Amino acid sequence: MTDKDDFDRRDTGVIRYGWWKTNEHFSAPKSEPEAISRVSGSEPGTLRRSRDLVEDDLREHTEKYGGDFGWPVIAVDFGDGWQYVYRALKGKLVDVRNMSPDQAAKYQGVRDGKTTNRGGLREEPPRDELDILPRDLDESEAALSDHGTSEPELQTAIALGGETERRYAERVVWQRLHQPELRRLTLLHHGTACAYCGMDVPQIIEAAHLASGFHR
């Protein structure tokens, strides 16, 4: 996702980005993020790449969140623990360092055990939603690169293919960028060859559940 503020120099030094379902999930002491991405350097491009990976994954998995459900959170780790920095509103990230630093500090204080004043926070989620193993988005990207098709190849298919091929290729590009879970796992384990007929045409490959039987 191309972000709005693109890069905030205050993020310099970040080593990880991660996301939580709601303020309450983040504020729970020692809660783990749903997914993480590690930053491989200090340049704006590497920071933006990791944050975009996390935001794309967040938006794929939190359609029901927002409003009454609570807003997803993206936190950063400078090497000394997770810090609440971004709130994911519909279609954009908001940097709480600019918008509501006092509120962010309160949530951070609850997480760090420095205060028991929960303010507007709702009840803490159950521990099975908090004691989780974060998904590593960098490993997922690497696995897809090893087994899947490169972006230049897909873009070539879009440019040169007929109308039907172009529609298929455009769909594959959209799915690859947003990492639907089923397609991610399918490509990770089976590569780009169709498990049904063996055809290996990355431009039209799709992931689907196959029923073990059929109905008359």
Results as ranks from 00 to 15, higher is better:
Met1His: 10
Thr2Glu: 15
Thr2Pro: 05
Asp5Trp: 13
Asp8Pro: 04
Asp8His: 06
Asp8Gln: 10
Asp11Thr: 10
Thr12Cys: 13
Gly13Ser: 10
Arg16Pro: 01
Lys21Thr: 05
Thr22Val: 11
Asn23Tyr: 06
Glu24Gly: 03
Glu24Trp: 03
Ser27Ile: 00
Ala28Phe: 13
Ala28Met: 05
Pro29His: 01
Lys30Asn: 12
Ser31Trp: 04
Glu32Tyr: 04
Ala35Ser: 08
Ser37Met: 00
Ser37Thr: 03
Ser37Gln: 00
Gly41Gln: 02
Gly45Tyr: 04
Arg49Pro: 01
Asp52Ile: 13
Leu53Tyr: 09
Glu55Gly: 09
Glu55Asn: 10
Asp56Val: 11
Asp57Gln: 10
Asp57Ile: 00
His61Trp: 10
His61Pro: 14
Glu63Tyr: 00
Lys64Leu: 12
Gly67Asn: 15
Asp68Ala: 10
Phe69Ala: 15
Trp71Asp: 14
Trp71Val: 06
Pro72Ser: 08
Val76Gln: 06
Asp77Gly: 05
Asp77Glu: 08
Phe78Met: 10
Phe78Asp: 12
Phe78Arg: 14
Asp80Pro: 02
Asp80Arg: 12
Gly81Val: 02
Gly81Glu: 03
Gln83Leu: 08
Tyr84Val: 01
Val85Pro: 01
Val85Ala: 09
Val85Cys: 01
Ala88Val: 09
Val94Ser: 13
Asp95Ser: 03
Asn98His: 15
Met99Trp: 15
Met99Glu: 13
Pro101Lys: 07
Asp102Ala: 12
Asp102Val: 03
Gln103Ile: 04
Ala104Pro: 00
Lys106Asn: 07
Tyr107Leu: 09
Gly109Val: 01
Asp112Ile: 04
Lys114Glu: 14
Thr115His: 02
Thr115Met: 04
Asn117Val: 12
Arg118Gly: 08
Gly120Ile: 09
Gly120Arg: 15
Arg122Ala: 11
Glu123Thr: 13
Glu124Gly: 00
Glu124Ser: 08
Pro125Thr: 13
Asp128Phe: 15
Glu129Thr: 05
Glu129Arg: 01
Leu130Glu: 04
Asp131Val: 14
Asp131Trp: 09
Asp131Asn: 14
Ile132Ala: 03
Ile132Thr: 14
Ile132Val: 14
Arg135Trp: 02
Asp136Met: 01
Asp138Cys: 09
Asp138His: 06
Ser140Arg: 07
Ser140Ile: 10
Glu141Trp: 05
Glu141His: 02
Glu141Leu: 10
Ala142Gly: 02
Leu144Pro: 04
Gly148Trp: 00
Thr149His: 06
Glu151Tyr: 05
Pro152Leu: 06
Gly161Asn: 05
Thr164Asn: 08
Glu165Ile: 06
Glu165Thr: 08
Arg166Val: 03
Glu170Thr: 05
Glu170Ser: 13
Arg171Ala: 06
Val173Pro: 00
Trp174Pro: 08
Gln179Ala: 01
Glu181Arg: 15
Leu182Gly: 10
Arg184Phe: 06
Leu185Gln: 14
Thr186Asp: 02
Thr186Cys: 05
His189Asp: 15
His189Cys: 09
His190Val: 03
Thr192Arg: 00
Ala193Tyr: 05
Ala193Lys: 06
Cys194Thr: 01
Cys194Leu: 01
Ala195Leu: 07
Tyr196Leu: 12
Gly198Val: 04
Met199Thr: 15
Ile205Asp: 00
Ala208Gln: 05
His209Leu: 14
Leu210Arg: 14
Leu210Lys: 11
Ala211Ile: 09
Gly213Val: 12
Arg216Met: 11
Arg216Asn: 15
